[in-house]
Design a protein around this nucleic acid. Structure first.
Lengths: 355, 355
DNA sequence: GTGAAAGCGCTAACAT
DNA sequence: ATGTTAGCGCTTTCAC
């Protein structure tokens, strides 16, 4: 139940590297026979440096193994090259994928990326949130649920911040902050229509948590399709993000043979549904159809392979970073942020209604 | 195929917060009628401040909404309160879980955590790696494969760094750096013995990538058990980290009816194996037994539920951070790092050998 | 094209 | 117990 001795601490514990240790801009300057200012110019790729001088300095930097001190750069008011990602979760697919996208884009732009997980009850006040930010003081908040939204609200107006959010209600533009989202309402409708087209009388919905009190647009899309088709609109079943929570929420549902189609808020939930279905002796897709959202890497390999709405969270994350980058440096002229449209990937878990 | 208009950029784009914007220690000092030094003392919880003074300063800080500038703290040689996690992957379960553990422990210690993904070919030289580090210049490297090990090697001796690594060969203590690992060799043996005990003639192994040329200890554990039991030792099948790679590696294997037991290097691989088995018409566990490593959250809900060796990567991550924390501040006297021993979780995917 | 001066916000000595 | 004096390593001005 407890830890083991698998630790190796043989290091000649050098004191944490203070002061005279690291080579500074000055040493490079002296070694190259120029002023520290010139070195600074070279580092930042600024103009007004003779090519030869630049080359010399570059060589010296290489030779001395010099690396600019980020803290000093930030303090001296250099360009912000750091983002902190605030998120309530790192395990759920959407969050993790968005984070990957952000990190990837940030790395390409030579930004440092920090990450801080938001506990449900923390980060209500500006200070709580700001304290989490690393040097640069620029942030991207993944706000798919309440905690993220609160953090977004708590961050002071004057900080460069972009939100990666749930699709807001139409015409209901969120607070005046740069934000990106995936338009999943139509995707939810499409998945629902697909099921209806297969002959199912109606479709039941297992929802992931929403960022607001009001129903998410994903749920709205499901209702839209149901209403448009004149199908009954069953109450939605609130669930969490995990297979376990999907399993729990679905147990009751699958016991009812009238239920022949279930739309799960994400693929992990769908895994739980698949499991519950099997335990209840329901055959998927013969007896019951299941569709998820995300198209996680596992989904194609499940038994049965899961039909799912592919959501490009990585692209969304990249776009979120792009937006922030533009905010920090309008001249960067980064490529316009784009990400894939949701796409319904048909696999084995959905099929014609029984009988 | 491409992006959509779901962007909102209505912000009165305030310039990125420079200079006089943020309240500093001086303003707090003036407002409280003390010196900036006293404020500093209060911030850092240093002694030699009268309780009343402390309270007054605290109140002023609260009132002004002051937050210390991390860059300045770092620059002025304050205690390092930042770690950067270097990792080659953030999607695979082990990596992601270790990262979560690190983040959790770091947050509790009020550390900022940075993250940087190592591309296979980068980070060969100290500079490449150091550039990725954020302000604090302390790092934790998740080195489950080659890229991580290279980064670990490239980092200068004098930086505070700890490695979260693959279990090293016994007696083969790695380079003199603080490291933590999970002792999975015995766990692999146990899983193998379990299968052998079920009557399987032998067990086949699908390996995840190793951090070194030599075989991983996990694989070694599998071989140990096979040899000890006098069972034939089939060649191992190298795979990656994903379900897809598990599926590919297993397709050939499952076609062979002689193969009745497969040990997969992680649960994602096992998912791929399960899929390949089903496509090949093999019944699990009636016909074929499958065991994975990790006990990921999905594993209990798969069809069939996956027997797996639970590996406490979160605990390992927490321990890694604990080690680093001690390195940076020996007085911190953090609780000794502990994490759970591997544990074989029996579920539906393993059973008696056929016939 | 290059250098010198000033200061970013903070902490670590030293005073007092 | 509190205040004063120096920097930390860098990027700005502004001179030359």
């Amino acid at each position: 139940m407890t830890g083991s001795g698998n630790i190796n601490t043989d290091t000649p514990t050098t004191p944490p590297e203070r002061g005279q240790g690291a080579t500074s801009i000055w040493e490079v300057a002296r070694a190259a026979g120029v002023s520290h200012q010139t070195v600074s110019r070279v580092i930042n790729g600024k103009p007004h440096v003779r090519p030869e001088t630049r080359a010399l300095v570059l060589a010296t930097i290489e030779e001395l193994g010099f690396t600019p001190n980020r803290a000093a750069q930030a303090l001296a008011g250099g360009p912000v090259r750091a983002v902190t990602v605030l998120t309530a979760d790192t395990a759920a697919y959407g969050y993790a994928a968005a984070l990957r996208g952000i990190e990837e884009a940030a790395r390409a732009a030579r930004f440092t990326v920090g990450i801080s997980v938001l506990e449900p009850d923390a980060a209500r006040q500006p200070q709580d949130v700001i304290e989490r930010l690393s040097a640069g003081r620029a942030a991207i908040v993944i706000a798919f649920e309440a905690a993220g939204v609160r953090a977004l609200d708590a961050l002071p107006e004057n900080l460069p911040v972009v939100g990666v959010v749930e699709r807001p209600a139409s015409g209901h533009v969120p607070d005046g902050r740069p934000q990106v989202w995936i338009d999943d309402r139509e995707a939810a409708s499409r998945a629902t229509r697909h099921l209806l087209g297969l002959g199912h009388r109606t479709v039941h919905y297992l929802s992931i948590p929403s960022s607001t009190q009001r129903p998410s647009q994903r749920m709205q899309g499901w209702q839209d399709a149901l209403r448009a088709a004149g199908a009954p609109v069953p109450p939605q079943h609130p669930a969490g993000w995990t297979p376990r929570s999907g399993y729990r929420a679905a147990r009751g549902l699958v016991a009812d043979r009238e239920v022949t189609a279930i739309l799960a808020g994400n693929d992990d939930l769908a895994i739980g549904v698949l499991r519950a279905a099997r335990e209840a002796g329901r055959d998927v897709p013969g007896d019951l159809s299941v569709i998820g959202f995300d198209d996680a890497p596992q989904s194609a390999y499940l038994n049965p392979a899961l039909t799912s709405v592919r959501l490009d969270f990585e692209g969304l994350g990249r776009a979120g970073f792009g937006l922030l980058h533009n905010l920090l440096d309008p001249n960067a002229a980064a490529a316009p942020p784009v990400w894939d449209e949701p796409e319904l990937i048909l696999r084995e878990s959905s099929g014609p209604a029984p009988r």
